[in-house]
Amino acid sequence: MYLADHTWEELGDYFERESLALVPLGSTEQHGPHLPEATDHLIAEALAREAAERTGYLCTPTVNVGVSSHHRQFHGTMWVDPPAFRDYVASFTRNLAYHGIDRVVYVNAHGGNVQHLREVGGRLHESGDAYCLEWMWDESIPDLVSDLFAYNGPHAGPKETAMIMHLRPDLVREDRLEAARDGGWVDFTYDAACVNGARTFYDCVENADNGAFGDQTDATAEKGQRLFEAATAQLIELCEWLAAREAAELLPRPHV
């Protein structure tokens, strides 16, 4: 059920019987020479709307711009400052709570949003406004990602490439897959980019001149469909688990 497609009367019927909403969040940022800047928000919206369609839960409009200043050196990347992002997400979540939503799944597809969504969730839990969970699609299916790709990369790699091949093949520059691989860092690991346990980089460009990691030539639409179906199943199970919780279970525990 997509919120923006319905009238206020129809939405009132939903709020009378349900108290859960899915909020897709992504980014508008560089994804190498082969993927569109819409990559993250396309993935987040597709997963959230598919889960909502299959379950009947409410899906809100997508937050398309996130915390992405670490990609700012690349043309067209958009971002908001972390405090503004956190305050914005907290504000519209309280808006949902005003209508009767007391549990929210942030359907996230951008790593730069993770820590900020978790902070917002903690803030709203502490205040008792709502119980919010940050859900990152690839973190829900790590074994499948590892099985499908030898070098999956943390950004603009084959897992995201495969997902966009499945969702929007018209936006994938398949003639640039080898360039993405050869101009990036194929076997990147965070440990390899650290010195004596300290992460010494702040911006993506410090590790990959073209902004891409992993082996993009290993991606296919078929693999993307497998990722999409597996992640959707995980998201649906999470929603069902959250919906089944008693409201009292979601409130902060009293002082010992």
Rank of each mutant, 00 (worst) to 15 (best):
T7G: 15
L47C: 06
H71T: 03
Y57F: 15
V256S: 05
A198S: 11
R54I: 01
V120E: 01
D129T: 11
G66V: 02
A230F: 00
A243T: 07
T77S: 15
F74T: 00
M1Q: 11
A179C: 10
D147I: 03
T217D: 08
L25C: 13
T28C: 06
F74N: 09
H99L: 08
E249I: 03
S91Y: 09
T7Y: 11
A162H: 05
G12F: 01
L35K: 12
G66L: 00
A248Q: 10
A130I: 01
G66F: 00
W8T: 14
A212C: 06
F85W: 05
T60S: 10
Q73A: 14
Y98P: 10
E18T: 14
P254L: 01
S19Q: 14
G12P: 08
H6L: 15
L96K: 07
L171F: 09
G122H: 11
H155V: 07
C239W: 04
P33Y: 03
P36E: 02
V104R: 01
A84Q: 14
A233C: 04
H166Y: 12
I164Y: 05
I43N: 05
V256M: 15
D215T: 02
R17F: 02
T60Y: 03
H110P: 12
V23R: 13
W241E: 11
T232Y: 10
V63R: 11
D218M: 13
G76H: 00
A244L: 07
R226M: 12
T60M: 10
L177A: 08
L117E: 09
E206H: 14
S69G: 04
V205C: 12
L251P: 04
D143Y: 13
F15V: 07
A150Q: 13
L22M: 05
R173M: 06
T77G: 12
E50A: 15
P24K: 03
C194M: 10
S127G: 10
I164M: 08
W137C: 00
P169I: 02
P24C: 07
P254A: 01
S68M: 09
R181E: 09
A38N: 07
I164R: 09
E53P: 06
I236V: 12
V145L: 05
N64W: 07
D187C: 04
V104M: 00
W241C: 05
L133C: 07
H110Q: 08
A198V: 10
E229P: 12
H166L: 06
Q216T: 12
E229D: 15
S91A: 14
R226D: 13
A180S: 13
H166I: 02
V63G: 14
H75L: 03
L3M: 15
I236N: 06
L250M: 13
D175G: 08
L124A: 04
D138N: 08
L96W: 12
S91I: 00
T93S: 10
Y202S: 14
D182M: 07
F74K: 04
L58H: 11
R181W: 12
L22V: 01
V120M: 04
T7H: 09
R17G: 07
A52G: 12
G128P: 13
